[in-house]
């Protein structure tokens, strides 16, 4: 049995009120959306906030709306709803796929899009019970001074494990935060630091109020491929999203690749578009380009022993999953 540490639960009804409550208790209060990440972490003694602010009753944080500026996704939209939402499936297929393979069915019914974006980093030495961590003398990320992944490491390398983030990066999505000084919008690709302890440039008194996905190219295709031991429940051991834009002749006019579950930040693999531009899926040139992209990803993506699964094996799987993602992207829906 794992009990939660005692806390006071507050249930504000507006985003402004939630931000006010956060600023009232600096460093003592935390936000909870679906709780599928925070609750197990609190049970493991990783967070012991005095106050937990539930977003369940905050109005206006749910649902998907469409305008000329693209899709506006409410952060409280559950992952199950996002994966089945017709607008997301049509306009941002990689995001729908990624949302549909986060954890297992029960977790997706409660876990939210915003929660997956704001997910804490994960590490096999960190996501453990207090008793387990104490036995090892703790770790750099929590309560200790030692990194068990990188010998002598001075920087935490817990892995960004957000399935939806590579998809959002390839879609050039942005996040809107509400803070005490008002709203700010930031590109999701620019949200990250390479510090596994806190890997997001988000202040503790800011609340995610929207995720914006701009309109994509007419021949947009996208997909997400996820490596894990079981085809359910597990966090990614490697995940990659691709965007493949095809012009009216069916040749590639734009492409992008982003990966997760490597280091503390999600990573965009640069130079992918150049390799694929002008090739036509089904042709030999395209197959050749896919192979070059897979080898490029193999060179750039170096998994560490931070999440379960042998790091060498995960690295060998990188080109496999990149190839699969690229080949299945052309079969995905496109707007």
């Amino acid at each position: 049995m794992l009990r939660l540490p005692p806390y006071r639960l507050l249930e504000p009804s507006s985003a402004e009120e939630a931000v006010k409550l956060l600023t009232d208790e600096p460093g003592e209060a935390m936000l909870i959306a679906g709780g599928t990440d925070l609750v197990p972490n609190m049970k493991h003694g990783l967070f012991e906030p005095k106050t937990v602010i539930s977003l369940a009753k905050v109005e206006g944080l749910e649902g998907v709306s469409d305008s000329d500026a693209g899709l506006r996704l409410g952060p409280m939209t559950t992952l199950a709803d996002a994966s089945q939402n017709e607008l997301i499936i049509e306009r941002a297929p990689a995001l729908a796929q990624a949302a549909g393979v986060v954890a297992g069915p029960q977790l997706r019914n409660v876990g939210t899009l915003g929660g997956n974006l704001m997910l804490d980093t994960r590490c096999r030495w960190y996501n453990q019970t207090y008793f387990w961590r104490k036995g090892l003398g703790y770790c750099l990320k929590k309560d200790g001074t030692l990194c068990h992944v990188v010998e002598g490491g001075a920087r935490c390398v817990a892995a960004a494990s957000n399935d939806t983030v590579p998809a959002l990066m390839t879609l050039n999505a942005s996040a809107v935060f509400l803070g005490p000084d008002g709203e700010r919008e930031v590109a999701i690709a620019d949200l990250w630091t390479n510090d596994g302890i806190v890997n997001k440039k988000v202040s503790a008194d800011e609340l995610l109020i929207a995720i914006k996905v701009p309109p994509q190219a007419p021949g947009h295709h996208g997909t997400y491929a996820k490596l894990r031991r079981r085809d359910s429940i597990d966090f990614p051991l490697f995940g990659c999203a691709v965007r493949l834009d095809l012009d009216e002749k069916g040749t590639v006019s734009g492409a992008d690749l982003a990966a997760v579950a490597l280091v503390a930040r999600p990573m965009r693999v640069k130079g992918v578009e150049e390799l694929l531009l002008g090739t036509k899926p089904g042709s030999e040139a395209f197959d050749q380009a896919v192979e070059e992209v897979a080898q490029l990803a193999y060179k750039r993506c170096r998994p560490l022993d931070n999440v379960p699964g042998d790091a060498e094996w995960r690295r060998e799987m990188v080109p496999v999953y990149v190839r699969r993602a690229l080949r299945s992207a052309t079969a995905s829906s496109g707007a």
């Binding site: 909870i32 709780g35 539930s54 199950a80 029960q106 409660v110």
Partner: peptide
């Protein structure tokens, strides 16, 4: 998944759902 209950008909894990939810 041993703690699965139906919340508005959807399978949900009761062990990580704050009761107030």
């Amino acid at each position: 998944g041993a703690c699965t209950v139906l919340l508005d008909g959807k399978p949900t894990l009761a062990c990580i759902l704050p009761a107030a939810r």
